[in-house]
């Protein structure tokens, strides 16, 4: 088990990283779109263009990600609560489980 974890998490990634990073400057915690997608695209003459709405400017990107994470978190929590409450309602009604499959 230890060997499996060691191989999967350290040995194989380290080997692969060493294989693909020859000659490339590697920045810590770079996203793989920079370290892989854009790197290979650039090598083959393709460059990324600016997005239609460019929020990647200063701290604006942090703001939109924080906003998106908060909204997504609230929506997820809201629906999870709804799912859990449906179960309680069903228990209270005594209607029990399933009325046939959806599919």
């Amino acid at each position: 088990m230890f060997l499996l974890i060691y191989t999967v998490f350290f040995l194989f990634p380290a080997f692969s990283l060493q294989q693909h990073s020859c000659g490339a400057e590697s920045e810590k915690w770079q996203g793989i779109d920079e370290s892989v997608v854009k790197k290979f695209a650039k090598e083959h003459g393709r460059e990324a263009k600016e997005p239609l709405i460019n929020t990647d400017q200063g701290d604006l990107l942090l703001f939109v990600f924080l906003l998106a994470g908060t909204i997504g978190g609230f929506v997820g929590g809201y629906y999870w609560r709804m799912l859990a409450e449906q179960k309680q309602d069903k228990s209270a009604d005594g209607t029990g489980n399933g009325h046939g499959n959806i599919h």
């Binding site: 996203g31 779109d33 997608v37 460059e47 990107l61 942090l62 990600f65 924080l66």
Partner: peptide, 14 residues
């Protein structure tokens, strides 16, 4: 907010 939002999605124009 820990690190910049870069990941696997293929960017515009690639």
């Amino acid at each position: 907010t820990v690190c910049e939002a870069h990941a696997m999605h293929i960017s515009e124009g690639i």
